[in-house]
Design a protein around this nucleic acid. Sequence first.
DNA 1: CCGGCTCACG
DNA 2: CGTGAGCCGG
Lengths: 260, 260
Amino acid sequence: MFEARLPQSHIFKKILEAVKDLLTEATFDCSDSGIQLQAMDNAHVSLVSLNLRSDGFDKYRCDRNLSMGINLASMTKIMKCAGNEDTLTMKAQDNADTVTFVFESKNQDRVSDYEMKLMNLDREYLGIPETDYACVVKIPSGEFARICRDLAQFGESINIACTKEGVKFSATGDIGSANIKLAQTANVDKEEEAVIVEMQEPVSLNFACRYLLNFAKAAPLSNQVSLSMSLDVPLVVEFKIDDIGHIRYYLAPKIETDDN
Amino acid sequence: MFEARLPQSHIFKKILEAVKDLLTEATFDCSDSGIQLQAMDNAHVSLVSLNLRSDGFDKYRCDRNLSMGINLASMTKIMKCAGNEDTLTMKAQDNADTVTFVFESKNQDRVSDYEMKLMNLDREYLGIPETDYACVVKIPSGEFARICRDLAQFGESINIACTKEGVKFSATGDIGSANIKLAQTANVDKEEEAVIVEMQEPVSLNFACRYLLNFAKAAPLSNQVSLSMSLDVPLVVEFKIDDIGHIRYYLAPKIETDDN
DNA sequence: CCGGCTCACG
DNA sequence: CGTGAGCCGG
């Protein structure tokens, strides 16, 4: 059987908020090492990759590898029924066609369980090569969300330009042009406010704003987000998730000329 | 060139909130003495007049008089990209057809700039005679907004009746009639809560609710609003803006009988 | 002053 | 349904 317990359901709630607008359904692959989800978004433009290590769970047991095809809208509905502080347990029998979510309040006064039908989903295994990136930028995730929101008003694509001094986000459109420059922080008063640029080589790439906006929905999962970029290679937007794993989004640059 | 800097962008943000529903575009007249905007609203019913003195700015430079035709929806979008505590700098070259807004966070780690195209707008210079008013009422601006909102439910016009005892706002309609009376405050505990009536002669005038509602959007700019009234003369609704100027709205009374 | 939540609108 | 604005709490 499969059983995984987290002391706080809110991580899972936020994960669902972070994927449900990109994916209508997805397969959760459970193995001894943890839970993994990997899927192209509905439009087959970006890729979502979620990793939750087994050791990050309060309790974890997975006797046999298990692929659970899940309708994310349904799962979102169920997760909304959990209190943020509830203990969450996911359970499935080895060959079952359902998964059960159990929410327990801290004092055990309230226990609820939700059983959800699993789906058979076509799988597409995608190899993601590990790469060295020309630039890796870490910025506060709230800042990232804010930048995407602000620049979305100006155009459909956002240019990210990275030099060793910092990173610049730009957009151009009918109402004008916008540039947001973040300098690498010298004084790291609070770690979560740091802007850190690791640069081998400067890059300047364009991305579809709409996807970046969706990625930014993962901001509640982490104070910081890292953006890894190289020429002609998909951007990686990574949010670490506490002590358990990460969620990554991959998005190919727009191959446009810099005429905006 | 033209350059004007304010230590806090929120004044400008609020100014835009206070005009954007009345005007789709407007000309900002910049001169050595400051920035002025004067325009009839889209329906040519009311008049908006904004004055920002140069000495109210942190830094101000205007080599040549400059009239900037601005689409206020665009400018509103741009102002929404500023943090409330950001330093705001407006810049334009002498004969440029664009204006640039620069927002800087207090620690300079974040700098964003927005360039916006200027428009050529037809100008209408309107002389506004200085007048003595039969009644000048000062009330808390939040109170004013509340009154307009409350009375809006009853009818399309609001009667403002002023005597030396105080001021009464009334509306009548299908669902009934409403009267809100504010007595002149005796004990001025807090200045911003004061209701002050300066009366030469009592007045009772009717105004289109819809415009008063729009004027009330300037409430965040000031704790107090003053209403200046005389028979058959436009009402003046004035909000002082900190140490820098004011915004005034002018609205002619409805010439109806008091049958509501 | 910022973040989360709730309500209203497109 | 998803997004944006206003309100309340930390």
